[in-house]
């Protein structure tokens, strides 16, 4: 069973440490991504317990009480160094949740919604670009 992800101050601080606020946009912690992280963890075994495990490991490097952002950053670094594979998976799900958020799309200029059916316009194929390359003599090796 997928364990629950608790939206506590440590989780928010860790997520903000991973992707900090920028301009008017809160960091990954302040955006309120917990329900999205929970869904992503539940929908595929790949991410099943990635977030709670990460938070448990990170919390072990911290004293009790409210850690400041420098301490959180240091604890994240320790996790990254100790277990690069687990850390990469944690980073992946955080990036996925953050970069699926419409408020983030607004900031970076990405269209919300599915890729289809809109696609993107492109200028048509223009053969004049071949002018130089097509002048070259054939250079493939001739064999029977």
């Amino acid at each position: 069973m997928t364990p629950d992800i608790r939206e506590d101050s440590l989780l928010v601080a860790v997520l903000d440490g991973i992707i900090p606020p920028t301009g008017n946009l809160p960091g990954a912690g302040g955006l309120g991504l917990v329900s999205e992280l929970q869904r992503m963890s539940r929908d595929h075994t790949k991410y099943e317990d990635v977030v709670p495990r990460a938070i448990t490991v990170i919390s072990r490097s911290l004293d009790s009480g409210e850690p400041d952002s420098r301490e959180v950053e240091q604890a994240i670094r320790e996790f990254e160094a100790a277990d690069p594979k687990d850390f990469a998976r944690f980073l992946e799900i955080v990036y996925l949740a953050y970069y699926s958020d419409p408020r983030v799309y607004d900031r970076i200029g990405w269209r919300t919604g599915p890729l289809q059916p809109e696609g993107h316009p492109m200028p048509p194929w223009d053969e004049s670009i071949l002018e130089t390359t097509k002048k070259r003599e054939p250079f493939w090796t001739r064999v029977e």
Binding site: Y95, L96, V104, Y105, W110
Partner: peptide
């Protein structure tokens, strides 16, 4: 897209 740009 955004996430594949960021991941890795």
């Amino acid at each position: 897209g955004p996430a594949p740009t960021a991941i890795g």
